[in-house]
Design a protein around this nucleic acid. Structure first.
Ligand SMILES: [Mn+2]
Ligand SMILES: [Mn+2]
Ligand SMILES: [Zn+2]
Ligand SMILES: [Zn+2]
Lengths: 157, 157
DNA sequence: TTGACAATGATACTGAGTCTCAATATCTTC
DNA sequence: GAAGATATTGAGACTCAGTATCATTGTCAA
């Protein structure tokens, strides 16, 4: 994510708060700066840790309160990767339809976009009498190619 | 799921246990009978409740111990629908590649299969140097068509 | 029948996420 | 800039799905 995109996402979120008559606080600034200062997926607990480094007054409660605002604004997506915690993705501001492929051997995650996929989902949904709102495709795989090249390091090693 | 398929799935699971030198107990029988006696998606707690009706000695611990065996055998799939509990699906014995479309308004869930989808996922994964192991597509939608026909009852009603 | 050991239930525990509430900060109006 | 209305805060109690522990019981091969 380019510097300009980060600033744009941040501005959009502050506008979102204003539209909903919500207040811009020091804690929310620290959280938003953290979220749009990375392109990594993160957990709520990671976000708490990182945001505390910017402003030690940020509490767990505020992080958990701010995450739904971030997802509601459409700038961050909440994802389930089958773990017992949720994963948050700040890359939707830029790439609102991307999906993920996960290597079960080494936990590598690769993002991808596909217009053909989006179109097919629309087609299937329409055929069943639905209108798509959101979608989430997770492919669990093994990175055979990379394993051959020695780039897939099994966890057990 | 036809009666014969249910018996087949149950037999497969008992074989699976035998292959792994695991024992066939009364509690496991009650759980398996329950799982393959329905084609509904269920939670672990629901399974506990239903299995207890068949054999009141079934405990929560045994249900939670048996579920990983069922998923490992490939006859049941574990799914995340964005709730804070997992959903289990006994229909994979019959339809090992189906996916789900969920109406956010009325919580209706429709299952679908698509060879084109499977093929596209394979194509995308191969292109990125991965070999697909499992996949999960969730489409959140609103059932416009059914709403028009009065079949989509909003939760608030 | 016996013995090795897999499986069991009860229950304590874990940990992500939610709720509560008194104290505080923001923002608007004057 | 002060005041007032009210949104937001942190601390910590709480919830609840899922896991771990352990003494007891059940399975099954020999
Ligand atoms: Mn992503
Ligand atoms: Mn299903
Ligand atoms: Zn890998
Ligand atoms: Zn509906």
């Amino acid at each position: 994510m380019a510097e300009s995109d980060r600033i744009a996402a941040k501005t959009k979120f502050l506008d979102f708060l204003e539209e909903k008559n919500l207040r811009i606080t020091a804690q929310r600034r620290a959280i938003v700066d953290t979220v749009f200062g990375t392109d990594q997926h993160f957990t709520a607990e990671q976000l708490l840790e990182w945001a505390k480094e910017k402003d030690s007054s940020v509490s767990r409660a505020t992080v958990y309160r701010t995450l739904p605002l971030l997802t509601e604004s459409g700038l961050v997506h909440e994802m389930d990767f089958g773990k017992d915690y949720k994963i948050y993705d700040p890359n939707y501001a830029d790439h609102p339809n991307h999906n993920h492929i996960i290597c079960d051997d080494c936990d590598k995650i690769v993002e991808f976009e596909s217009d053909r996929l989006d179109q097919l989902e629309d087609e299937i949904s329409t055929g069943l009498g639905f209108k798509v709102k959101t979608q989430q495709l997770r492919i669990n795989a093994s990175c055979e190619e990379m394993k051959r090249l020695g780039e897939c390091k099994n966890k057990g090693n």
